[in-house]
Design a protein around this nucleic acid. Structure first.
Lengths: 337, 337
DNA sequence: CTGTTAGCGCATTCAC
DNA sequence: GTGAATGCGCTAACAG
């Protein structure tokens, strides 16, 4: 249904003014007499007049809207990042369009098109675990629309990125396990496609190396982050001839699932087997025992990403920078280790 | 920075065609020769042409965008509802703008203006706990923009609503506690401003009445849902001369906090004190002991709300209906009771 | 089958 | 201080 709308013309007619005068009032232009200004503002108020941002965006070739594409919406991670980003964006006068890709490449591509069609001034992107081709994202660059990655970044593209020090976070987590006298530390790793998985794996290996613990490939299990598979891998680990006495998990949802499986087997956490996660999800402090994890400054990730994006929007294309911000993580030791 | 854009005119010029012909191809109009169609499509593909939805929206006086306003983004509740809504909306060709009001009336009003300015075709709203004045929402009706409430509905407005049977859910929860031989069942209630609080309270009282348990106003504590206050109220309850042996909490975050406080006091859950929540948050199954709670069909709430909204959008204003859908809850008994 | 014209709502020239 | 004219990108109505 097409709907009727109060426009500048309506106001102009009722007041016997020209559209341009009304427009001047509404845009805060100084050269209008107080009487007309008053009259216009009153009538606008009375008629619930709202400027049509669509037409303004069209006219300015600028929508004052940024897009955010995240892979999922299940964990508390991305909603928090989004909140941080929205705060900064709103402050700078930008609206936000949020899409989640459902961890699917196709959906990500579709979301990308949607953003483009809706004339976003810039996009914040965190990739799906499936994304290996980046053509749909390079279009933004070609069109002069800035893009900033966070968390799941694209290493192929030379644009601003916000990440945390995954290597160091993983290193500290594993080091902590070593200091707890754990000798056989397993790693439930993420898919190789994600740089965060790769970096955390490196941190894991580096920590073992530092303390002269042999790296046993049998204890390193990469998986695709799909819920449900955790059980298979944990069971596999427990059935090894020489089973692990600790598991460092790629993220908290994984760790939480692992912890519950281990408990159900009657094993003691952390005595028989310690468990450490990554990201400090809301839930990690609620389970029993509470999960040791590497916390990320989630909100700050969102806000710095948004800030980088807005800076980029305000720069001319020729002066785009590709700043990479690496934020600090913090090891939070709880009872699970 | 204003940015350049590939337009229909660009394509038309390069191909020595009129804009309208190009437009016809892009809109799938049949009356174009195969040769021109082919040529246009090829060039469009090659130039990464994307239709500018802003101009189309302006032209049609229809943005194919719906707005969703939720009070918060912390619990897993609203993200899930949003996912349900987005699914249906996307299916029907609608984009989504999501805003959270941070449980603040002022932000809600601001979000409302933003939706209006961005010409949404309809809005899905769940109110903040502060909202008592509904003028900002009634504007939508006056402008012919349909609005549908879910969860935190506005009883003043005669529009479609999606809720769950809070009364029955609460009734069953309390009845369950009675059957567990609990005699002094407290209720950590929500603010009176929210109909859901009122209904859950009624369900609570009705259940007690049915089983001839006297209603003790001392055991009913309404609070404003702010995290941190739970501690005060739980401690207060525990210090009563005749303390409760069960607490029915307005929602899961509250129940989880209550449970942790009670445990820290050295009390046994559920033997000394049973705890029941509402909504079946992700976290409720992870804590120890797992929380008994009333589950809501969260995703379905979102999808039905979106469906009602789209139906409304497709109807003429004169034929708007105010359907109220009440979805079923389900009591999920776990170890906390 | 194709081209021409008008106009969605607005801000910004340029006149006076 | 105010009005008239132009155009953002696009589609639809009207011609041929």
């Amino acid at each position: 249904m097409k709907r009727h709308q109060v426009t500048i013309v309506d106001i102009a007619k009722k007041l016997n003014l020209s559209k341009s005068t009304v427009s001047r009032v509404l845009t805060g232009h100084p050269s209008v007499s107080d009487k007309t200004r008053q009259a216009v503002l009153e009538l606008a108020e009375q008629l619930d007049y709202q400027r049509n941002m669509l037409s303004i965006s069209l006219l300015n070739r600028k929508s004052n809207t940024i897009g955010i594409i995240v892979p999922e919406f299940i964990s508390s991670y991305f909603p928090q990042v989004i909140m941080g980003a929205q705060e900064v964006a709103a402050e700078a006068g930008y609206n936000t369009i949020i899409c989640h890709s459902n961890e699917t490449y196709e959906t990500e591509v579709a979301n990308t098109k949607l953003m483009l069609a809706n004339q976003v001034d810039g996009v914040l992107v965190s990739l799906t675990k499936e994304t290996r081709n980046f053509d749909h994202l390079k279009i933004f660059e070609r069109k002069g629309i800035p893009i900033v990655f966070f968390n799941r970044v694209c290493e192929d593209m030379d644009v601003p990125k916000v990440m945390v020090d995954d290597y160091e976070g993983a290193f500290r987590a594993v080091e902590h396990l070593v200091k707890r006298k754990k000798k056989r530390i397993a790693h439930l790793a993420g898919p190789d496609s994600l740089p965060i998985s790769v970096k955390r794996l490196k941190g894991y290996k580096a920590a073992l190396k530092k303390y002269n613990i042999p790296i046993d490939e049998e204890l390193i299990i990469p998986y695709d982050l799909s819920i449900g598979k955790v059980k298979i891998y944990v069971n596999h680990l427990l059935r090894l001839a020489n089973p692990p006495d600790a598991i460092f998990c790629i993220n908290d949802p994984t760790a939480i699932e692992a912890l519950q499986i281990v408990k159900k087997k009657g094993l003691d956490v952390p005595k028989d087997i310690a468990i450490v996660g990554f990201s400090n999800d809301f839930a990690s402090d609620l389970i029993d025992p509470p999960l040791t994890t590497v916390s990320q400054p989630v909100r700050e990730i969102g806000s710095t990403a948004a800030q980088l994006l807005i800076d980029q929007i305000n720069r001319d294309v020729s002066e785009w920078k590709s700043i990479i911000k690496v934020l600090k993580t913090e090891l939070i030791v709880r009872k699970s280790s």
